[in-house]
C-alpha cells in the first residue's frame, strides 16, 4: 500500500476551520463592527473569525508536509439514529405529550445499534417512558403534558 505523503485528517481539519471562520466572518459583518475605542457587536467576532482562518491555514499547510493516518470508520447508522433522537423528542413532546415523546425517542435511538433486537427495543422504551413519567412528571411535577393533544 502506498503511504500518503500528507495528513488527510488535518487537511480536512484545517479546511473546516477556514470554512467556519469564513462563515462567522460573513455573519459578523451583518452587525456593526464599531471602532477600537467603542467596539461594536461585530468587532470581536470578526477578529476571532480571522484568527480561526489563520489557524486553519497553519494546520492545513503543516498537514501537507506530514504523514498521518486516514480518518477511519464512520458510524453512519449511529449518526442517523442518535442525532435524530433529540430532534424527534423536540417534534413530539408538545403533540404526543411527555410519555409518547420519551417512548419514541428511546425507540428511535435503539435502532442505532445492530445488537438491539426490536422486541428488546420496545420493552426498553416502554420501561423508560414509564420510569421517566413516574419520576419527572409525577415525582418532580415537571410542567409538561403527559398525554398531548395529538392523542386526545
Amino acid at each position: 500500500m502506498k503511504q500518503a505523503t500528507f495528513d488527510p485528517t488535518n487537511i480536512i481539519c484545517g479546511a473546516f476551520f477556514i470554512l467556519v471562520g469564513a462563515v462567522f466572518a460573513w455573519q459578523s459583518l451583518e452587525v456593526e463592527l464599531g471602532s477600537w475605542l467603542r467596539i461594536g457587536p461585530g468587532g470581536m467576532p470578526l477578529a476571532l473569525s480571522l484568527l480561526l482562518i489563520l489557524l486553519g491555514l497553519i494546520i492545513l499547510l503543516a498537514a501537507l508536509r506530514e504523514v498521518g493516518e486516514p480518518v477511519g470508520a464512520i458510524a453512519w447508522r449511529g449518526i442517523v439514529f442518535i442525532t435524530l433522537a433529540p430532534i424527534i423528542f423536540g417534534f413530539t413532546v408538545r403533540g404526543l405529550g411527555f410519555v409518547g415523546a420519551v417512548f419514541i425517542t428511546a425507540l428511535f435511538a435503539s435502532f442505532a445499534s445492530l445488537r438491539m433486537t426490536p422486541l428488546r427495543a420496545l420493552l426498553l422504551s416502554a420501561a423508560l417512558a414509564a420510569f421517566s413519567t413516574a419520576v419527572f412528571s409525577y415525582g418532580l411535577g415537571l410542567p409538561f403534558e403527559r398525554i398531548g393533544p395529538w392523542l386526545r
Partner: peptide, 18 residues
C-alpha cells in the same frame, strides 16, 4: 452499551428540554 445509549438519549432530551 446498546442498552445504555437509548437511556442516555431519553434522559438528556428530557434534561435539556426541562
Amino acid at each position: 452499551y446498546y442498552v445504555l445509549f437509548p437511556i442516555i438519549m431519553a434522559f438528556c432530551s428530557i434534561g435539556v428540554y426541562s
